[in-house]
């Protein structure tokens, strides 16, 4: 009863008015809706593996099959250098953060349109939708991480203390995906061209990142600096470093961080500006 009373006194007042200008994130509100983000993430994962015989095992199979292909084509046939690592290990250590990124990007960019029925009927912070798509990708990543562990055991690689950096690097990969995903999902609400473009963006981006080849292939100097504009270069390099050792991430990592911060902040503002119209045009 007392609790009731308190609730009544704290009746929130919501103001309805035409939206103007740029809005920042309301973190309090996002926090209040954390359970919604959780349930949307949970739904995405659940639905993805429903009625599939292998279920969540697909999250293991996909990286395994991809590494197999890469190893045959790039490792065996093309004899691509791999920083002195066994090629499969070299590939998987880049493939995991890449698939996390690509998955998160693909899911988030179509997420708003895919949830149009919710957006047009019910109010909640719209950021919850791309956020939960990115989170869902993280679950897949967690599962496929076992592939990496298995391969490290097989090749007898023991990670060093650099491993402690891993959570930070994974977070960075997620933020990168979120930054781009915010932009693309908001644009996709009005221009469905985006969802046709995304597969190509992902493909081009993959070859523009040091996944199947080592970064040394890119000439040092100005080219390497330009290459660093791709934030996934920093992610993949540091991820490999954290797990398998080798050269420490250099100044390219700094460029990547700056690029991601820029994309993320602008993405959030663009998203917040557009979200008021989502229900009307989706």
């Amino acid at each position: 009863m007392e609790k009731r009373q308190q609730q009544k006194e704290a009746t929130p007042v919501i103001y309805l008015k035409p939206s103007k200008g740029w809005l920042s994130i309301d973190f309090n509100e996002l926090w209040r809706y954390r359970e919604l983000i959780y349930f949307l993430t949970w739904r995405d994962i659940k639905v993805r593996y429903k009625q599939a015989v292998l279920g969540i095992a697909w999250a293991l199979l996909q990286p395994v099959l991809t590494v197999l292909i890469f190893t045959v084509v790039f490792g065996v046939l093309l004899q691509t250098p791999s920083q002195g690592l066994p090629y499969p290990l070299f590939a998987i250590s880049a493939l995991l953060p890449w698939q996390l990124f690509a998955n998160a990007l693909q899911r988030s960019s179509i997420s708003l349109v895919g949830n149009a029925n919710l957006i047009t009927k019910i109010y909640f912070p719209r950021l919850a939708i791309p956020l939960s798509s990115v989170m869902a990708a993280l679950v897949d990543f967690g599962v496929s991480f076992f592939v990496l562990i298995g391969m490290m055991v097989y090749y007898r690689y023991l990670p060093g203390w650099n491993l402690l950096w891993l959570p930070v690097i994974i977070l960075f990969a997620l933020l990168t995906a979120l930054a781009v995903g915010l932009w693309l999902s908001a644009i996709n609400v009005q221009y469905r061209d985006v969802q046709h473009m995304v597969p190509f963006i992902v493909q081009v981006w993959m070859y523009a990142s040091p996944i199947v080849y080592p970064i040394e292939i890119i000439p040092a100097g100005i080219w390497r600096t330009l290459y660093g504009l791709n934030p996934m270069v920093g992610v993949i390099q540091s991820y490999r470093w954290a797990l398998l050792g080798g050269d420490q991430p250099d100044a390219t990592m700094l460029i990547s961080i700056v690029v991601v911060i820029f994309l993320l902040v602008s993405g959030v503002y663009y998203f917040r500006r557009m979200e008021k119209t989502f229900a009307d045009i989706v």
Binding site: I14, Y15, L16, S19, K121, I122, A279
Partner: peptide, 11 residues
Amino acid sequence: VTDPTLGFGEI
């Protein structure tokens, strides 16, 4: 779900 074009309200 959607914002008014003009006007004001409080809930």
